[in-house]
Write a protein that binds this DNA or RNA. Structure first.
Length: 473
RNA sequence: GGGCCUAUGGGCUAGCUUGGUAUACUUGUGGCUUUGGGAGCCAUUGACUCCGGUUCAAAUCCGGAUAGGCCCA
């Protein structure tokens, strides 16, 4: 099926099913089964995060799923933000519970009562922990595998600091992790400071991590929040400083969800199916033996040897020795997005080469047997580079500069959906007016400095900050 | 939040208007045969979402639930 702005929704569901990423037939809305192939990819993404977080002195923990209502309600903005979308546990066996339990929509209110016990001295700071767990939100909107679900697989890191400045340094560290992670996934991103009216409930400020989907809507993959002392005050998380004074900690959080997988599918996939970067491919290489009758050489054995050699060299390899036609196998593995296909037949063995086909470009050629490992690594580097460049180009091409609201196409039904970049004075009045008049959400202002000299698109005041607006998924 | 539509083997689907015997393709299984882009032949397993109503009789008509899809806010 072709992938474009109009077919995207249908195309996506088709790929998810055909590539075997998830089974949406589980009989609860928005709760899908992770099938082996999809779960393997998710685990690669998780393992990258573990590497990054462990490497920056975060400790992994695992908190309970249930949160007492009394703790959940301590921070007022926070509860207001989640009020309408949490699941409640109201009964235990046949008895009604005195204190109802919230199924976590995120873990601030589970963790912070414990932080209050854990943090006593300035020597306990910074406290940096994370967990990779499932979280639950009662979505009323249309659900979609990995992109809008009611049971969300995500990671969340939570930190406590002795000052706002140190918390700010944590934000910078988190954003470096975002860059490296997205780099490994070949995904483009925007880092945008959300508007005040769109920040996380309870946050001082929020930086959203967004990427562009094939329909030109943006998808938020995660976010980084600076809480200041907004949670430490109600949860009483204090430390004793060098002078014996008791102070509230400054906190941050950083989280990303299985939406990264949704983005991976959407951004890199094409009319043939999934297209995986080698970094997350459950199989980086599939080997298809080309058998024949009455051949002088034992192709089946040669293919087995080749598979073992490549496994020994550290590649994730699948030997497809099913009793089926080669052409049929090609289609199967293309749907599953395996980056590199190697074909081995009598002809190749004679010439001491392997025939390869790249999933991303379809390019075919041969690699000499005696430089196979280097040859394959070269192809992988090229695939990674190509996927990343293509994705960034699509994202940047989706951005339209606006000097006036008249530049926005009024016909929003078709492919004219765009991301807009324009001057904004930063006032909520102008922001709300822009959103209401044009029926577009302001995503925010660039967290990293962008050169800009222009006028606020609403009031005309000079400004050196652009804003981004888009329709969101 | 409001509206529209749909539900039949693992997948896709015919049948529903006008109530009575459920169709094709695909997949799966066993066999023969075949292998450089979805081969062919034979045999075979497998279904009317659930609850209630109307009726001699319900996949079909009516009501509700659940799940899925689309459109608008």
């Amino acid at each position: 099926m072709e992938k474009n702005a109009e077919t995207y929704g249908e195309w996506y569901l088709d790929i998810v099913e055909k590539a075997g990423l998830s089974d949406k037939r589980y009989p609860i809305k928005g709760m899908n089964v992770w099938t082996p192939y999809g779960w393997k990819i998710m685990r690669f993404v998780d393992s990258f995060l573990r590497e990054e977080l462990d490497g920056t002195d975060h400790d992994e923990v695992c908190f309970p799923l249930l949160i007492p209502e009394t703790e959940f309600k301590k921070e007022k903005d926070h509860i207001k933000g989640f009020d309408s979308e949490v699941y409640w546990v109201t009964h235990a066996g046949l008895d009604e519970l005195d204190v109802r339990l919230v199924v976590r929509p995120t873990s601030e209110t589970a963790m912070y009562p414990m932080f209050s016990l854990w943090v006593r001295s300035h020597q306990d700071l910074p406290l940096k922990i994370y967990q990779i767990v499932n979280t639950f939100r009662y979505e009323t909107k249309q659900t979609r595998p990995f992109i809008r679900v009611r049971e969300i697989h995500f990671f969340e890191s939570h930190t406590c600091h002795d000052s706002e400045e140190d918390a700010q340094r944590q934000i910078e560290e988190d954003l470096e992790i975002v860059k490296r992670l997205m780099g490994r996934l070949c995904l483009p991103y925007f880092l945008l400071k959300r508007t005040d009216w769109d920040k996380f409930p309870g946050a001082h400020y929020t930086v959203g991590i967004d990427t562009v989907m094939p329909n030109h809507k943006t998808l938020q993959l995660g976010s980084v929040h600076h809480y200041r002392t907004n949670f430490s005050v109600p949860y009483d998380i204090t430390y004793e400083d060098e002078n014996g004074e008791h102070k509230y900690v400054h906190q941050t959080t950083y989280g990303m969800s299985e939406r990264t997988l949704g983005a991976l599918i959407s951004v890199h996939g094409d009319e043939k199916g999934l297209c995986l970067p080698p970094s997350v491919a459950p199989f980086e290489i599939v080997i298809i033996p080309i058998l024949g009758k009455n051949q002088a050489v034992d192709v089946a054995k040669a293919a087995k040897d080749l598979t073992n050699d490549l496994k020994k060299a550290g590649f994730r390899v699948k030997l497809d020795d099913r009793d089926d036609r080669p052409g049929s196998k090609y289609y199967d593995w293309e749907i599953k997005g395996v980056p590199l296909r190697l074909e081995l037949g009598a002809r190749d063995i004679e010439n001491k080469v392997v025939t390869y086909a790249r999933r991303d470009t379809g390019e075919k050629g041969t690699i000499p047997m005696d430089s196979l490992v280097d040859g394959i690594n070269g192809v992988f580097d090229s695939i990674t580079k190509n996927l990343s460049e293509k994705a960034w180009k699509f994202q940047m091409d989706s951005v339209t500069e606006l000097s006036s609201v008249d530049d926005i196409p009024k016909d929003t039904e078709d492919t004219k959906l765009r991301i807009y970049r324009f001057g904004w004075c930063g006032s909520p009045e102008c922001g709300h007016r822009f959103e209401d008049d044009n029926d577009i959400k302001i995503l925010g202002t660039p967290y990293l400095h962008e050169e800009y000299n222009g006028k606020c698109i609403v009031c005309g005041k000079e400004t050196d900050t652009p804003a981004y607006a888009a329709r969101t998924m």
